[in-house]
Design a protein around this nucleic acid. Structure first.
Lengths: 228, 228
DNA sequence: CCAAAAGTGTTTAAATTACACCCATGG
DNA sequence: CCATGGGTGTAATTTAAACACTTTTGG
């Protein structure tokens, strides 16, 4: 028993969060500027070693909150990365999560050892330490899959949104274009988004109708897949 | 740095493998009878603590080989489980993998601390220790998803198989029935399975044609999804 | 000749794709 | 009145679903 502890209970576990956000110029990822070893000064996924006393799910939320102030986000586990040499301090397994955020409604702020925090377009990511690049690419693929098979696109949109935004977000994530009329027909016929009667304000063109996701209708219809 | 080591490098990581097999009476899972603490004598998923010197992927293969003799199987990571109290010896994160096996072509044998090894129908699983029940159910759901989105059903079938077997395996995994004619139309039209000219032998009814998966054709067609 | 599973086509309904013009607003 | 993005319908094609009888073999 003592031998077992010595032989096996000597590794560490971390979580790394891939936080996706969405705004007028497309899909973004939240990175922090590291203020401690290893790799101080470099942009990286908000992640940290986790303490043995907390459940895994909760640890992921806590790390994110500690580094960025973000809380109460939609989060799901994606994959664990365990290459022997992925961390310079020793053997660290990292469990990657992704989180989806309504950019307008939260204001991430660096805290703890994070010196800064910023959104980066997914097409303009700087060099990342550890295997964070690999984790990010994996997360992007998973987001593609899950946007098609789960009803989670609304986690990225504000409460009121236009169909054009809904289409643009799908196009950004799936890296594919859709026909405007077919897209509208399909999404509206799902029965899970509804008109609000409101219109866009202060736009220099015909104002678009604002829609909202009807979660209770979705539940009632047993709607669980993607909207496309 | 020393503090960090003391504070974080004191947990363990294990892998647990959910090995799916398929034969005439349906979908099976391979379990071992545990010959060591904790839970000696109980049936469990073949899994074990892993050593800090090996890559994660390789650890999963190695644990499976050590306990059951099985090697060179198709394996994929599914999810990591990290409830604080899931292991009585301390904080153990476990990374679950699933493996798919052609039952006819391998003969699992208990070794190391596994005292026995046996196939159990997925509908007749005994009580399992740790959170193995939860892991198994998660693996079944993942298998359902992946059978529809990846070309992996052939990992469970022998080299030569009948279309009835192909249909039965889909029905077993997806827990859903399909129309014979529609099933055959769809699978054959995929272009990735081919007749071999061979027939079943020693059956007490009209012998079925034997087909085989044409992997190079699949690659050529960029066929990546499920066959249904 | 019987039992048991293999094998085979057509019709209907539903979903997907392709495609082009007018509308409402602010400046 | 112009620029900008919002908004709309129909026909053609493809895909999915429903459905019942004949064939081949071994015993």
């Amino acid at each position: 028993m003592k031998k077992i502890i010595k032989q096996y209970f000597n590794v560490a576990v971390s979580v790394d969060n891939v936080v996706f956000g969405f705004d007028a110029d497309g899909l973004k990822v939240l990175l922090i500027s590291r203020g401690s070893e290893p790799f101080p000064g470099s942009w990286a996924l908000p992640g940290d070693l986790i303490s043995p006393e907390m459940d895994l799910e909760y640890s992921a939320e806590r790390v994110l909150k500690q580094l960025t102030g973000l809380d109460q986000l939609f989060m799901e586990q994606i994959q664990t990365f365990g290459r022997v040499d992925r961390h310079p301090f020793g053997r660290v397994f990292t469990i990657a999560y992704f989180a989806l955020i309504k950019v307008e409604q939260y204001h991430p702020q660096a805290s703890s050892w994070a010196k800064d925090v910023a959104w980066f377009k997914v097409t303009e990511i700087p060099t990342l330490p550890f295997d964070h690049r690999e984790i990010l690419e994996y997360a992007r693929r998973e987001l593609k899959n899950r946007i098609r098979t789960q009803t989670l696109v609304f986690e990225l949109l504000p409460k009121y949104f236009t169909l054009t935004e809904l289409q643009f977000i799908h196009e950004s994530i799936l890296e594919e274009e859709f026909d405007v009329r077919n897209f509208r027909k399909k999404t509206l016929s799902s029965g899970i988004i509804e008109e609000t009667g409101k219109l866009q304000k202060n736009v220099t063109h015909r104002p678009a109708k604002l829609y909202r996701f009807n979660a209770s209708k979705a539940k009632q219809l047993d709607f669980e897949g993607g909207i496309l």
